[in-house]
Write a protein that binds this DNA or RNA. Structure first.
Lengths: 245, 245
DNA sequence: ACAAAAGTGTTCAGCTTACACCCATGA
DNA sequence: TCATGGGTGTAAGCTGAACACTTTTGT
């Protein structure tokens, strides 16, 4: 019957080995649009197609460590900066033929980056770019699916966690926070009600002492806030119109 | 910089290979308590300790297929029955030293089983048993963590999905459905309010024509319901008292 | 003066909560 | 007849949706 864990005398080399990789859905907000970090593949298979950044998990490394390492490499952000970013395991993709070359099991992560730099164009052929979500065509491998899963997960988590602050710089206005919800959900929220909701949820945000900030162009300067202690919202901030996909 | 997917000339045998396994947190309700399916280990490491059932992913098999295969083996349920059960990927555990023998990456699943048989005692030494949740001591490997993650996930998903019906047989009473919430959350719910909430949520349950069922011992016979079309609840059914762990 | 964005106030509908009460069955 | 669980009714209180209105800035 079952083999439980490793059976007596199990030989790791008896099977064709599995490769374990990480794939990253790195999301950010630029100019009021959701953007994804994509890389253009230089080799077959899928040469010329766009794909999620990623790479192999090293022999002595956890998948999360591998994901953070790749994130730093691809974005050009420092290790220290990357250490503070929101990185979350999404799910693992294991279909036997998802990579035509060999058996690859990929642990996918979602990363949220506020105000990112241009990805550093490395020396090699493949370029990395921020692409507005939805304007890329089909991605390589099963990355369409991974990216869609990431988007859905982020949208859902905005409802019942404080995740939205991960898209914002350390100090932000309530308008910027509201922009996160509106952009990811693709809806408009009532400004007064959003403000009340956020301010009355304990631990969501905390006011920053000091002068308000001029918000881009016109309008009254807005007070600044920092992310609070809480990680979950109770009650949740539900998106309008039921639960669209 | 990045290796993207497999670099040119990547040799799958160049690194010590990763083993890929599945671990299952199989939950059920028995006598108004949450139970977990555990197996007693017969060999080192952790000989004599209890562990989650699981096993290796075969070379041409997805992790989900492996999980369903193991579930059938461990519970003794037929392949056909297992095909209809709720099985969901939880997360993947990748710490390099989580198994002292070799590098094992494990994709964990949560399975929900209504009214299960005793696990079939296989021919070999290791026994499998339903254990009341929380009465097992420390589990082998990182299985304490996996099981705790599974419990938390199930508790959270009861709030905003129809998951509770997965703990119930095909036809069930509202009392049985309420019992799921009360047992998993460890709280008491107001019977009238629960009933209204469930019946007014479109697609949660649908009434079964026919005579009501006598509920165990005393009390008025209860009407029967089947799981509905819906998968998510809007608005959610929040547990009382904030969000306890 | 006007547009744009922040911030305050107010109303109304709908939902949650709490609890009283009746019904059907077994012991 | 009593205990037990199913099922109905209802009133109080809270939350969220909608929207009118004021404030402060840039053009």
């Amino acid at each position: 019957m079952t083999t439980h864990r490793a059976p007596e005398g199990y030989d790791p080399y008896a099977f064709a080995p599995f490769a374990v990789t990480v794939d990253l859905a790195v999301l950010t907000l630029r100019e009021e649009r959701l953007h994804v970090l994509l890389v253009e593949r230089g080799q077959e298979p899928y040469a010329g197609a766009w794909a999620l950044p990623g790479g192999f998990v090293l022999p002595r490394e956890s998948a999360e460590a591998a994901a953070r390492r790749e994130l730093a490499e691809e974005t050009g952000l420092s290790e220290a900066t990357v250490a503070g970013l929101h990185l979350e395991q999404l799910r693992t993709y294991t279909e036997p033929d998802r990579d035509p070359r060999m058996r690859v099991v990929s642990v996918a992560f979602t990363a949220l980056v506020p105000d990112p730099p241009e990805p550093r164009g490395g020396g090699d052929a493949a370029q990395a770019r921020w692409i507005p979500y939805g304007t890329h065509g089909h991605l390589a491998f099963d990355h369409d699916r991974i990216l869609a899963d990431a988007h859905e997960r982020v949208g859902a988590k905005l409802e019942y966690t404080c995740l939205a602050t991960a898209f914002c710089p350390p100090e932000f206005t309530l308008g910027e926070l509201r922009q996160v919800y509106e952009t990811v959900w693709g809806v408009e929220l009532d400004r007064p009600n959003f403000r009340r909701k956020v301010l009355t949820t304990p631990g969501f945000v905390q006011a920053v002492e000091g002068p308000p900030r001029l918000t881009g162009g016109r309008g009254k300067p807005a007070a600044l806030y920092r992310a609070g202690e809480a990680t979950t919202l109770h009650p949740p901030l539900l998106r309008p119109e039921g639960r669209p996909a």
